[in-house]
Design a protein around this nucleic acid. Structure first.
Lengths: 110, 110
DNA sequence: ATTTAATATTGCAATATTACGATAAAGATT
DNA sequence: AATCTTTATCGTAATATTGCAATATTAAAT
């Protein structure tokens, strides 16, 4: 098939998977890195920062935006892309939760 | 094309992307959920917990293992799968780092 | 030694992703 | 208005992922 069976999983599982999937490409991780590095979020030069053609970068930005990891607003001729803090906190919470659950069950595990 | 251009990104970016990608499917998130829930890590019944056929589950387990998110050991007739705490901590650190960097640059952003 | 039980592998079809050239769209500049 | 600059979209080729039936593997149980 090739289509993910999202129906059979919980909303939470699907939500985490969607966010993780969006970060599942080095170019998209690199975009986040860059957005964290630059002072402002006017980011007209992301294309120059990546070893990919402009349409490819645009596509990756779109995916990050669809997943909610970044926000984008048209600013005259350029576009202002910024990280959406809240969504990253969601992921942080998830991994913190996993780690603390691991801490609890440490003794039972191999 | 279709092949990710890993060569042009940093090791760290590729590492995060690989881990995120491994969690980029609800079935694999569900597997992690289940491993966290059960007391021991003898997990011969993962297949019954998921709405997917046995070969599909096996494949997802393999991917989680390849990414390093879980460890698997043959235990007689069954297999003992467990979460690899260290790797999850790596992800936790990443997201904590992103969040704290966001905290710093809050004022400059849109 | 057979059978049973649990997991892995193979092979394949359906679909998704990645990448980019060509082109479009839209505001800025001249 | 014509041009430039920046970003998005379309179309398409190459590759990857998802899912499962069929089969293999391996060890325990009979």
């Amino acid at each position: 098939m090739g289509a993910t069976k999202t129906d059979h999983f919980t909303d939470k599982q699907n939500a985490i998977a969607t966010l993780a999937k969006a970060l599942g490409h080095p170019a998209r991780v690199a975009i986040i890195d860059y957005l964290l590095k630059v002072d402002t979020c006017i980011c007209g030069d992301i294309v120059n920062e990546l070893p990919l053609a402009q349409p490819t970068v645009s596509q990756h930005l779109k995916e990050l935006k669809n997943a909610g990891l970044i926000k984008g607003e048209i600013e005259g001729n350029a576009i202002c892309y910024c990280i959406d803090e809240k969504i990253f906190q969601k992921l942080q919470n998830y991994f913190t939760s996993v780690s603390s659950k691991m801490e609890v069950k440490k003794s039972n595990c191999c």
